[in-house]
């Protein structure tokens, strides 16, 4: 379908007499075009192309700032080191797991929140505001706040559990419970973003569709699956793209809640990159790790973009 629309575009221009691109060959027009594009191109080069290029280059170097030795070319050494680095595999797996749990989790909670916020309340702003608050809170604050919630001795979670007669657990003393606490926090923090985008999508669905469905005698559930969900798809895909990419880069919440502990069982790839570059100052290995994340993010984006294109 995409190719079809492109063809239409080209033929359209062809039909308008002279070939559309010939105007760029006109010297005066071309200079203008270059001049107009220059600022944006320069800025992009400065803040994106150069750093990414430098990252790729560094990932092929032996560059450790603590060694006092100047950088040397290392070929694929940093990449081959990664293969038998158990912590690399563990943190990558943790990252994938967090993505697989929190993205669908946040989608479900976000969808429910959006449907609730879309109900015909008389006063809408308190509902919308309470939806916005978790989204507006900085990630690290959310991590620190929830770290206290889940504290084994002073935390509110164990306190509530105790009051209803359940013996609480030492959340951060066990890999599974710590992981669960982190996932819950991430879902709480990110579902409001999902809800906001879905809510915007919900409001574009014309009421008339529901009225027609009512007339046809379709129930609430039927209306949801036949009208709401299909029409929400574009909004959901957009929300998923953003959420998945940020989930792959998860850093703040586990960093502030557990620092990756116990052991390295809740550390993410982003935390491992940070540790290698900032704590160990091993920029070569850190850059190679960052390349893996870069490729992962690009891969996910490509999949979603394809989904949008085939749907759109």
């Amino acid at each position: 379908m995409a190719t079809a629309s492109e063809t239409t575009l080209v033929t359209m221009h062809n039909e308008s007499g002279t070939k559309w691109w010939t105007r760029f060959l006109d010297p005066s027009e071309r200079t203008l075009a270059v001049l107009l594009l220059m600022p944006a191109a320069l800025l992009l080069t400065l803040i994106i192309v150069y750093p990414v290029g430098r990252l790729i280059w560094t990932s092929f170097q032996n560059l450790s700032l603590t060694s006092g030795v100047p950088a040397t070319f290392a070929g694929f050494e940093n990449y081959s080191l990664m293969l038998d680095d158990p912590v690399f595999w563990e943190t990558t797996w943790n990252t994938v797991l967090i993505t697989l749990i929190t993205v669908p989790g946040a989608l479900l909670v976000g969808l429910a929140l959006a449907l609730m916020a879309n109900l015909p309340f008389n006063v809408k702003w308190p509902v919308r505001l309470s939806l916005l608050i978790p989204w507006a809170l900085p990630l690290s604050f959310a991590g620190l706040i929830f770290a206290w919630f889940f504290h084994s001795e002073y935390g509110v979670v164990n306190d509530v559990l105790r009051r209803i007669g359940i013996e609480g657990v030492i959340w951060f003393n066990s890999a599974n419970w710590a992981f669960a606490a982190i996932c819950l926090t991430i879902i709480w923090k990110t579902s409001s973003f999902m809800a906001l985008i879905i809510l915007a999508g919900l409001q574009t669905i014309p009421r008339s569709l529901y009225e027609a469905a009512d007339v046809d005698g379709a129930g609430r559930l039927r209306q949801f699956f036949e009208i709401t969900l299909p029409l929400l798809k574009p909004a959901i895909v957009v929300a998923l793209i953003f959420r998945t990419i940020t989930a792959l880069q998860t850093f703040d919440i586990p960093f502030t809640m557990t620092r990756g502990g116990p052991g390295t069982s809740t550390a993410t790839l982003a935390m491992y990159i940070h540790q290698n570059t900032v704590d160990f100052l091993d920029l070569g290995y850190g850059s190679a790790l960052a390349m893996v994340m870069f490729v992962l993010s690009m891969g996910v984006t490509a999949v979603y973009l394809r989904m949008i294109r085939t749907k759109g």
């Binding site: 603590t66 066990s174 502990g261 116990p262 052991g263 390295t264 069982s265 160990f280």
Partner: peptide, 23 residues
């Protein structure tokens, strides 16, 4: 060793993991 930070990180996360019953 100039790579003490890494040596330290390996030892302390292992101790922490064992004490938490992680390994």
């Amino acid at each position: 060793t100039p790579r003490y930070n890494e040596v330290s990180e390996i030892i302390r996360t292992t101790v922490n993991g064992v004490l938490a019953g992680q390994s």
